[in-house]
Design a protein around this nucleic acid. Structure first.
Length: 486
RNA sequence: GCGCCCAUAGCUCAACUGGAUAGAGCACCCGCCUUCUAAGCGGGCGGUUGCAGGUUCGAGUCCUGCUGGGCGCGCCA
């Protein structure tokens, strides 16, 4: 197998580093290979924590025009045979393999159990032809519900779920094909075998092809399988066209890094099917590596030691997950240490930003006590003269805050929500710095009992800080914290 | 073999799509708690942005070629 020989040197390299007793970095990488790869190869949507939910979290909040997010899980119900023989009253297929050699994963056991619960022994001893389709439908239904529940658990709600099957049955693929044919972009031809690696079962075969090469792709791409059904690619064209027709000229796909080879042809197809009216941006997502107190969390499909997104959300809360997920570019792998994110320390970016917000609201509370006869409402503060703000650090904070509109706009344009998280870190740092300056110099404290005018100007600054942090957190779908006490 | 993504301080990562002296945190060293939350702050140390060319007034950012890593490569989703 060509893939294996190519991967081999890398594997050896890793081992060698370990043998040499490499530093923490080397070891980390070695150990990480396993869970990462397992998660990727497992290809089971909610097994392991992936980047994609993280990105969905960000974009849903960032783009009004891209708010309709889509998620398809072909895998769900893709292999109903893995459910095994008709379920027994107690847990179907537990611990055994189905005839096809598939692992009945935990999630399929749950489906089997659900069917057993509702249908009893109705399917026992019945031929596959009777139960297969029923099981498939039930599996899809339950899996989608399961996915929606997990997503809702961290505050993600999809406006639209597109069913590939429904799209095909509604004839969308057929219509798209006709459109492409009308534009002379479809023909029947024979593809060259891939260079360097010719599959053993390769044989020249005429296929229905899309002229992707006219739009920047390397070769033309097949639309139809030999059994007459559509390829994955053909269905995807229909899906993107459907989304375009629903009123979104700017399409965004969030894909795993293993789908990188798909980008060119999909962009080509979007250009072709929309007559150049639509555009497609593809965000590639790397995996998230789970750590616990600096040690990688090992996951094994066999041992059933997978940590799911739901597990993590339950452990640390949805806001922490959302924030941490957005502290990296989506195309970088993220190390998620769910010991660290619960710490109340500078190491924990969620805490750091929330602490700044809590401090700001705390100051405002104290100011209300110190100046009971003054109006500290937002409206009043926005009209306060700011001439007394003159300290370099005060002005520094003002400048950072003034950059918020531009920052959030550029993050939206670039489809890079992580910039908001980094920006909030800057705001928090500027505010914490100013706060501590008041420790050294009492005149720089926010509240000056004998100088109401300066205090009011500073309250305007503090209020603005809290507002910007709250706005940024809102973009990320995170609730600002008013108070942090033990 | 071909294609896509990536390479920035010892480590983990930024850098507002080509702008001024490339910034944070961790780690290490030195300071700061009678006073709005020290769960914090200030200072120091640390860089030929993988290598070599090119375009430009200006390049971490764009182009070419290398090196090293990830992913993929016709009826699989």
């Amino acid at each position: 197998m060509a893939g294996r020989t190519r991967r081999h040197p890398a594997g050896r390299h890793r081992l060698r580093r370990l043998d040499h007793g490499a530093g923490p970095a080397g070891q980390r990488r070695v150990r990480l290979g396993q869970p990462d790869r397992a998660a990727a190869r497992g290809a089971r949507p909610r097994r392991g924590v992936r980047r994609c939910p993280r990105h969905a979290a960000g974009e849903g909040g960032l783009h009004g025009h891209a708010r309709v997010l889509h998620q398809r899980r072909r895998r769900a119900g893709g292999n109903p045979r893995a459910l095994g023989p008709p379920p027994l009253p107690r847990g179907a297929g537990r611990g055994r393999h189905d005839p096809g050699g598939h692992y009945p994963g935990e999630y399929l056991k749950e489906v089997g159990q659900a069917i057993a619960d509702s249908d009893g022994d109705r399917w026992v001893g019945r031929p596959e032809a009777e139960w297969l389709e029923v099981f498939r439908a039930r599996a899809v239904e339950l899996m989608v519900l399961d996915i929606k529940r997990d997503l809702l658990g961290m505050g993600i709600r999809f406006d639209t779920f597109s069913s590939e099957r429904a799209l095909v049955e509604a004839g969308a693929v057929q219509r798209v094909l006709e459109t492409l044919q009308a534009r002379g972009l479809v023909y029947t031809g024979i593809l060259e075998p891939p260079k360097g690696k010719t599959p053993e079962d390769w044989e020249p075969r005429p296929q229905l092809l899309f002229k992707a090469s006219e739009f920047g792709d390397d070769v033309d791409r097949p639309l139809q399988k030999s059994d007459g059904s559509w390829t994955y690619f053909a269905n995807d064209i229909a899906y993107h066209h459907d989304k375009f027709l629903r009123g979104s000229p700017e399409l965004i796909d969030v894909l795993g890094a293993d789908h990188g080879g798909y980008v060119k042809r999909m962009k080509a197809a979007v250009t072709a099917i929309t007559g150049g009216e639509g555009s497609l941006d593809v965000k590639m997502c790397q995996l998230v590596s789970l750590f616990d107190g600096g040690k990688p969390v090992r996951m094994s499909k066999r041992a059933g030691t997978f940590v799911t997104l739901r597990d993590v959300v339950e452990a640390v809360g949805p806001d922490v997950v959302r924030f941490i997920m957005l502290t990296r570019r989506n195309d970088q792998t993220l190390e998620f240490d769910y010991q660290k994110v619960r710490e109340h320390s500078r190491d924990n970016p969620v805490f750091y930003v929330q602490y700044a917000h809590a401090r700001a609201t705390s100051v405002l509370r104290h100011a209300a006590e110190a100046l009971p006869d003054r109006d500290l409402s937002d409206a009043a503060l926005s009209a306060v003269p700011l001439g007394s703000l003159g300290d370099p650090d005060e002005l520094g904070l003002v400048k950072v805050l003034a950059g918020w509109p531009r920052l959030v706009e550029s993050a939206a344009d670039a489809h890079e929500p992580h910039r908001v998280a980094f920006y909030l870190g800057e705001v928090a740092a500027a505010f914490h710095g100013l706060w501590n300056k008041g420790k050294d110099d009492a005149r720089l404290r926010f509240i000056l009992p004998d100088d109401a005018e300066t205090t009011l100007a500073r309250m305007a600054l503090v209020r603005a800080t809290a507002t910007v942090i709250a706005s940024g957190l809102a973009v990320m779908g995170v609730q600002p914290v008013e108070e942090l006490r033990e």
